[in-house]
Amino acid sequence: MRKLSFLNIIMVIIGMVSLPSLASALTSMTEDQMRNATAQAGIVATMQDRVDFNTHVKTLAYGDEDGTDGRGAFLSLNNIEFKGSVTAINPVSTTVTTEMDRYRNTMLTGLNVSMNGVVVEMEKLNIGSITVGDAPGQGKSFGSITVEGFRAEISGNIRITAHP
């Protein structure tokens, strides 16, 4: 019993002697260093490979139900078809971080999206008709829009934050 107590006392003394040396490894930061500090929180999501889209939208409309004279007016894009893909040659990384806002002197949590080698290919985007009428999707068509063979390569970083 005495041996156990003696060992415990020795371990406590060793711990007390070593703790200050561990703490001395930490260094104080200046105000400027604190403003430039970045911290990361625990969410990381990664998209890799290819995502295909084959989408159909009956009507996408913008309008005002009562207009200026009591009648509605809507600009409608009808029978929208979108077929394409997004390919990540390298992984797309999404992280949640907290950084100092140098201008407001507050910490801001945000979403960082890093991408290098993302390829967006649009095989076809077709808007079957564009109409103006009293209700969404109604009225005479004054044309259509078609885009084929679109390709974009995207690389870079995006940071999204909400400002108070």
Rank of each mutant, 00 (worst) to 15 (best):
V96C: 03
N116A: 12
E121D: 12
Q48V: 13
R50T: 15
T109K: 14
D66M: 07
T106N: 14
F53C: 04
A45M: 13
G72K: 02
G67S: 08
H56D: 08
N90S: 15
K58F: 07
V119A: 12
L75G: 01
A45F: 09
V92I: 15
R104C: 08
E65R: 05
K83W: 03
D49E: 11
Q48K: 14
D69A: 03
G84V: 05
H56V: 08
I127M: 03
G128R: 02
L125K: 06
G72H: 02
V119S: 11
T68L: 15
T106H: 13
K58L: 07
G117H: 05
D69L: 04
G63H: 00
E65K: 13
V92S: 08
M107N: 07
N79I: 03
T46F: 04
T94F: 12
V92G: 04
R50K: 15
L111I: 15
M122A: 15
N126V: 06
Y62A: 11
T68N: 08
S93Y: 13
V57T: 12
L111N: 02
S76P: 08
E123Q: 09
A61P: 01
E65P: 05
T87V: 07
T131L: 02
T97D: 11
G67F: 04
G70P: 01
I89G: 06
M115P: 02
R71W: 02
V44R: 11
D101R: 00
N78S: 12
E81C: 10
M100W: 11
T46M: 12
D49H: 14
L108F: 08
T97A: 10
N105Y: 11
D64V: 02
V51D: 07
G72W: 00
G67K: 05
G133C: 03
G70L: 01
G63W: 00
T131C: 00
M115F: 12
V86C: 07
V44Q: 13
V118K: 09
N126E: 12
V119K: 09
G117C: 06
R104Q: 12
D69N: 11
I130D: 02
A73Q: 06
M47C: 11
L111F: 05
P91V: 10
R104L: 15
D101P: 01
N126H: 14
T98C: 11
T95A: 11
T98R: 11
N90A: 12
G117W: 06
N105M: 08
D64F: 03
T98G: 13
Y62D: 04
F74E: 00
K124C: 00
F82L: 15
A61E: 02
G110C: 06
G133Y: 01
D101E: 04
